[in-house]
Nucleic acid binder design. Sequence first.
DNA 1: CGAAGTTTTGATCAAATTCAAGAGTAGTGG
DNA 2: CCACTACTCTTGAATTTGATCAAAACTTCG
Lengths: 246, 246
Amino acid sequence: MSLSAKQSAGPMVFAVHLWRPGNPHKRVRHQLLSDDERAALARISSIVRFGKGEQIYNQADVADAAFSIISGVVTAYRAHSDGSHIVSFFHSGDLFGLSEEGRYSNATKAATPVVAYKIPLSALRRILDNNPSLDVNVIVKLCEELREAQRHALLLVQRRATTRLAMFLDLQQHLQAVRGAPAHEIYLPMDRSSIAAYVGMTLSAVSRAFRSLISRKIITTRDRHHVKIIDKAAFNKLIDTATLDK
Amino acid sequence: MSLSAKQSAGPMVFAVHLWRPGNPHKRVRHQLLSDDERAALARISSIVRFGKGEQIYNQADVADAAFSIISGVVTAYRAHSDGSHIVSFFHSGDLFGLSEEGRYSNATKAATPVVAYKIPLSALRRILDNNPSLDVNVIVKLCEELREAQRHALLLVQRRATTRLAMFLDLQQHLQAVRGAPAHEIYLPMDRSSIAAYVGMTLSAVSRAFRSLISRKIITTRDRHHVKIIDKAAFNKLIDTATLDK
DNA sequence: CGAAGTTTTGATCAAATTCAAGAGTAGTGG
DNA sequence: CCACTACTCTTGAATTTGATCAAAACTTCG
């Protein structure tokens, strides 16, 4: 692994800035880490790969490392007797494996093939202690995850299946836009049952909700992983019972 | 306001420790701040009071201060056309008003009479920059809030109303226990409609769920704010479809 | 005591779950 | 390249559950 050779090696962590007041309608995500900080992290990290579906760690495992995603999508979930609930999807630039107390509080697995930095917690902690500006950035990132968790909860309290699905699509679209990807089409890396586990409905309800939106000509699907919103007005009417932000 | 006179003046922030591996079955919350740090915060803070029901700040307001609760209960909520969704309840030792980008992302109001430290964000930021150990503690606290948000989501995906209510009671009990309060009886400072807004059901559904648990002799209520679990086995059977932690 | 606010309870209705079967996709090996 | 199998997804019919609307009981507080 080549360290310090390339100028921009090392984990990237992106987030919307915490202090700097921004335009609420056009959030910009910044690269939080300086080249030096990224290099410092790179020095203690290793690069790991996971195949699609592969488990990264299990709930309650002793936590020895955090991860920063280079590419791919990771699902954080909690298994329980009847199925499992998906807590969050992580994408490139996201940081996970941190919010615990010596043990991981969720299980994680690769939703697609994943490449990531693995950052040993002991070393991370050492670096944080000596790098005041760094942990402020971790704070920023955590705030972002917290806000997303709250939006997730907002989605979950909706009663109508179509509203939940629309809010889910909206959420994906925003994440995608803020990440700089083309926004004319929504890319859904995960499968239908993962969507179901995230929005808290059954697989069939998700399927029906898709059908409903399609037959009402609100969305179209190029294939199971690509959705386009064609009637924005109707779409927004579905979600704006709950949407005060954006 | 007397500063530095009393030894233990200044905001208190409690959280379960992040690094130190603990017994998952007996979490201990630590006072995160040293006396010096608390004094530093006290120097820049003022003490504020809010009456029951009073709004502390509104969603999308420009964020100028964070708050640390001395006593009372605060609800963080998002209003929308039909009712409002409660994102979180904050208790003494909790920190809120932080997870935004120049603007508050939720509204907050006092659920009971509240006394709190008000910490101007600009000053807080200055202190964080010069106080490496302090922001690690903020990280710890944010991780705790994140975990709680995820447990909340776990509650919200439950289908049965009685299960949701049971998980809510369980959550309250744990928060109470971890805070060092007597655990033989669960104290619910908020009213029924707040519970409804938190668990994502209607007021009547909450009422019915209570009735159901009472008539099945799983809980008793001394009054509307005090609940006792009398059939732990049945209670756990309700929630342990989802409970792998605790 | 009265009035406003909160909570409980009832009857009907809408919507998602469940259970089950059928269609579509992908991945494998001949 | 096609056929075969396993898997994911869609669709249907019956059932369950909570939402809705509305009215009655209970609390609180001036």
